[in-house]
């Protein structure tokens, strides 16, 4: 019973302490991957991390991956943001080291135009095939020969 009372007391005290330090429960800064950022900076960091590929788990973004390398990348993004760099500079930093493969969405450039054009090319090829097949099918049947015509007349007679 004594212990329960002590525990209860502690609980009340910690709650009170909590309420004092965070009166409205709205933190203005957040510490992640070893770097403290403002909320706006953290949002930007997450946006950058969502655009970059984790090179260990290659279909995951840097922001989502549990790999050690992704954690390091998140640290780099946040340290560079805290240093005052913008998103463009940070993405360039990563591309210089790992190439455009690190971008989840590849930029349109000479080596990627075929990749970007492939949906349109595939649709065109499909359209072409459909047109070709339709044209072949729509060939009108040859006209009836005189014998066939007279036979038809006979059959249609009531």
């Amino acid at each position: 019973m004594k212990y329960i009372l002590v525990l209860l007391g502690l609980l009340v005290m910690t709650n009170a302490a909590h309420a004092q330090t965070e009166p409205f429960n709205t933190p203005t800064s957040i510490k992640r991957d070893g770097v403290t950022l403002t909320l706006a900076q953290e949002r930007e960091a997450e946006e950058i991390g969502n655009k970059l590929r984790c090179l260990v788990c290659q279909n995951e973004t840097v922001e989502n991956s549990q790999a050690g390398l992704a954690k390091q990348f998140r640290g780099i993004i946040r340290r560079h943001l805290a240093r005052g760099e913008n998103a463009r500079q940070i993405v360039d930093f990563m591309v210089q080291r790992y190439g455009i493969f690190i971008l989840m969405k590849p930029p349109l450039m000479r080596v990627t135009w075929l990749l970007w054009a492939s949906p349109a090319l595939a649709s065109l090829a499909g359209l072409f095939a459909v047109v070709l097949i339709r044209r072949r099918r729509q060939k009108p049947p040859p006209p009836l020969s005189p014998q066939e015509a007279s036979r038809l007349q006979e059959l249609l007679k009531p």
Partner: peptide, 12 residues
């Protein structure tokens, strides 16, 4: 700290 490796583009 692995930062030199990242500057070399090492990913594993």
């Amino acid at each position: 700290d692995g930062r030199t490796a990242i500057n070399w583009g090492v990913y594993g």
